[in-house]
């Protein structure tokens, strides 16, 4: 039995035939849609490397059944920068060296974008640390990550939007 679902991934409608119901959203993205920016670190909701935005909210895609998200709007790390312009969160991650090996970075960035949109941190570093604690980083770039989120949040607020304030990468 096959299942047909339709997703909007990074603004593009994707009609997907699944030969099997057990495909997770993460494996759908990585192994069937070739969107490998989203990473699998634990596959059990314990590390955050697979974080994507589903209908604007950050979730662990490894614990999401693809079928159950039929019709959803998905945003992955590949859809964050637009037209050659990095998102302020991406820029801030580079500027604050909020990454080392880079493997957790897509999840960190998606989580940071989600966190900022949730609007609960008020620029408080402790709330940012808590809010980013679902994303493990074994290289331990946490200090830079916290700085980057605070910095990006501030710049986005100054730009007057939550997520709209893209700036030139240079």
């Amino acid at each position: 039995m096959t299942f047909s679902i339709s997703l909007t991934v990074n603004g593009v409608r994707r009609d997907v035939e699944l030969d099997n119901p057990r495909v997770t959203l993460l494996d759908l993205l990585r192994e069937r849609l070739q969107l490998t920016g989203t990473k699998k670190g634990c596959d059990r909701g314990q590390c955050g490397a697979c974080t994507v935005l589903v209908d604007g909210r950050r979730i662990n895609s490894c614990l999401a059944l693809a079928l159950s998200h039929d019709g959803a709007d998905i945003r992955t790390i590949e859809g964050v920068a637009e037209g050659g312009h990095l998102h302020p969160v991406q820029e801030a991650f580079i500027a604050h060296d909020a990454l080392q090996c880079g493997f957790c970075t897509p999840g960190q960035i998606m989580s940071a974008i989600g966190l900022i949109q949730e609007g609960q941190t008020d620029g408080d570093p402790e709330r940012v640390r808590e809010g980013m604690s679902g994303n493990l980083c074994r290289c331990s770039a946490y200090a830079g990550i916290t700085e980057a989120v605070l910095d990006a949040q501030k710049k986005l607020a100054e730009a007057g939007g939550t997520d709209a304030g893209r700036r030139d990468a240079a």
Partner: peptide
């Protein structure tokens, strides 16, 4: 409980 991502789901 859990993490921001898990609580969202």
């Amino acid at each position: 409980g859990a993490s921001g991502q898990l609580r969202n789901a």
